[in-house]
Amino acid sequence: MSRPQAVVLAAPGTNRDHDVSFALELAGAAPRIVLLAELLADPSVLRHAQMLVVAGGFSYADALGAGRMWSLELSHGVGDELTGFVAAGKPVVGICNGFQVLTRTGLLPGSLGHNDSGHFQCEWVTLEAPASRCIWTADLEPVECPMAHGEGRYVHPDTAALAAAGQVALRYSGHNPNGSLDDIAGVCDESGVVLGLMPHPENHVLPRQHPRRGRGATGGLGLPLFERGVRHAQGV
């Protein structure tokens, strides 16, 4: 199977683009970090790609609220190309700041507010994938990975309807770290190809990265999530 081309989009302040590229590489994709300015100058970059990753970080230093500025530039610069990419069934994932961006562009439902702690938190969480229409999390075993954000409290006017529509892709298991409604850690769009999530599965793709490895902890890798995206891209 050929390696699908994955565009890892980075705006000024994106800082987990290299981490997610490493994960995509392991998962069988051919990642390429594309700066927002490069994409705006040449939107055709998207046409040649099979996957799109909106990477985490602090785009524009979170000015105006996390992800706001970046989503404006995307919507106004390459809005049509983005819609076309999704309509073609090509998988898209927004992680952390990328999730915030995708909700603000309207590609994903809901919004992300300040954590109920009022500040940035870095800790490991466990994610469970309920049955949903999301292609990234279908039959996914629980993932253990870090979260690192200050604005990750998921809000939506009707989370029951969202769950009923099969759009709740990931839930925090055991401990809800930020006050997200219905323990929601990740949601997908109606088609199931666009996923947004706050935690960072890209930072747990090697067994060595597990914080309790010295205590015999195994499993919980985030890699299978990326592998599902890659497999889907190969089939498009």
Binding site: N15, R16, H18, D19, F22, H119, F120, Q121, C122, E123, W124, P146, A148, H200, E202, N203, H204, V205, L206, R208, Q209, P211, R212, G214, R215
Partner: peptide, 23 residues
């Protein structure tokens, strides 16, 4: 204090500032 800092980014932190059964 430690949880206010991202100590996970880059995926290279093998021994973290907080460790153990409950981290």
């Amino acid at each position: 204090v430690v949880r206010r800092y991202d100590h996970e980014i880059r995926g290279a932190t093998v021994v973290r500032p907080l460790v153990g059964a409950h981290h």
